[in-house]
Amino acid sequence: MDILLGIILILHFIGLASLLGGVLVQVKDAIAGKGRIVAAMIHGALTQLVTGVALVGLIQMGGGEINNTKIAVKLAIVLIITVLVFLFRKKNPVVSWAIWVIGALTIANIAIAVLWH
């Protein structure tokens, strides 16, 4: 079970890297009004969503403690990110605020994961 949990956690981090990396690549274009939703952002958002739910399920199956309020907040944020990514994926260029909001929510989710005990 520990190996599976570790693999899912690694995939969760890869999804985070993909999502945040996609946002950072688009920052310069977003400033110029030419930003777009790249595939890395779509795949990263979906990976974060699926692996996050899997992590919670695996931890609960193993008898671990879960802060349900924290998880609910993080789930709400990743759902908003995923909806924004899918709403704007076919628009070129995308409104710049969408990229900024996706980036800010991604960083907020990181902060919640690290700082909320």
Score class of each variant (00 low, 15 high):
residue 19 L to D: 01
residue 77 I to W: 05
residue 71 I to E: 12
residue 63 G to A: 02
residue 96 S to K: 14
residue 76 A to Q: 04
residue 114 V to N: 07
residue 57 G to M: 09
residue 93 P to V: 02
residue 58 L to A: 13
residue 75 L to F: 12
residue 14 I to F: 14
residue 41 M to Y: 00
residue 26 Q to D: 14
residue 50 V to A: 13
residue 35 G to L: 02
residue 17 A to E: 11
residue 49 L to V: 08
residue 77 I to Q: 05
residue 87 L to V: 11
residue 57 G to K: 07
residue 53 V to G: 05
residue 32 A to K: 14
residue 93 P to S: 05
residue 16 L to Q: 10
residue 99 I to V: 14
residue 43 H to W: 05
residue 15 G to E: 04
residue 105 L to P: 08
residue 71 I to Q: 11
residue 31 I to D: 04
residue 102 I to L: 14
residue 29 D to V: 03
residue 98 A to F: 03
residue 40 A to D: 10
residue 16 L to Y: 15
residue 63 G to F: 05
residue 104 A to D: 06
residue 50 V to T: 02
residue 22 G to S: 00
residue 40 A to V: 09
residue 1 M to K: 03
residue 31 I to Q: 12
residue 98 A to K: 02
residue 43 H to I: 10
residue 86 F to V: 09
residue 83 V to T: 11
residue 59 I to W: 02
residue 22 G to K: 00
residue 27 V to P: 08
residue 93 P to T: 09
residue 65 E to C: 00
residue 12 H to M: 09
residue 106 T to P: 12
residue 29 D to K: 10
residue 97 W to K: 07
residue 39 A to I: 10
residue 82 T to P: 09
residue 70 K to I: 07
residue 87 L to G: 07
residue 29 D to R: 05
residue 47 T to I: 14
residue 35 G to K: 09
residue 85 V to P: 09
residue 111 A to L: 14
residue 50 V to G: 05
residue 10 I to F: 13
residue 54 A to V: 06
residue 92 N to W: 07
residue 86 F to D: 08
residue 71 I to Y: 10
residue 98 A to I: 04
residue 64 G to T: 03
residue 19 L to Q: 04
residue 35 G to Q: 01
residue 62 G to F: 02
residue 21 G to Q: 10
residue 52 G to Y: 00
residue 91 K to T: 15
residue 22 G to A: 06
residue 114 V to F: 15
residue 102 I to F: 01
residue 27 V to H: 08
residue 95 V to T: 04
residue 32 A to W: 01
residue 15 G to A: 02
residue 27 V to N: 09
residue 66 I to P: 05
residue 110 I to A: 13
residue 108 A to Y: 05
residue 22 G to M: 10
residue 105 L to D: 12
residue 80 I to G: 05
residue 29 D to T: 01
residue 5 L to T: 13
residue 26 Q to W: 08
residue 60 Q to N: 03
residue 99 I to C: 12
residue 96 S to H: 12
residue 87 L to E: 09
residue 31 I to R: 11
residue 108 A to C: 07
residue 18 S to T: 04
residue 70 K to A: 03
residue 43 H to P: 00
residue 48 Q to P: 00
residue 39 A to M: 11
residue 80 I to S: 07
residue 101 V to M: 14
residue 36 R to K: 13
residue 69 T to F: 12
residue 20 L to V: 15
residue 72 A to L: 14
residue 67 N to S: 08
residue 113 A to R: 03
residue 95 V to M: 11
residue 15 G to C: 04
residue 81 I to M: 14
residue 47 T to H: 01
residue 105 L to M: 14
residue 89 R to S: 11
residue 70 K to G: 01
residue 61 M to D: 06
residue 98 A to E: 12
residue 57 G to F: 13
residue 40 A to F: 02
residue 77 I to T: 04
residue 31 I to P: 00
residue 78 V to I: 15
residue 6 G to N: 13
residue 57 G to L: 03
residue 35 G to A: 13
residue 93 P to Y: 00
residue 39 A to K: 08
residue 26 Q to Y: 10
residue 26 Q to H: 09
residue 25 V to M: 08
residue 94 V to K: 06
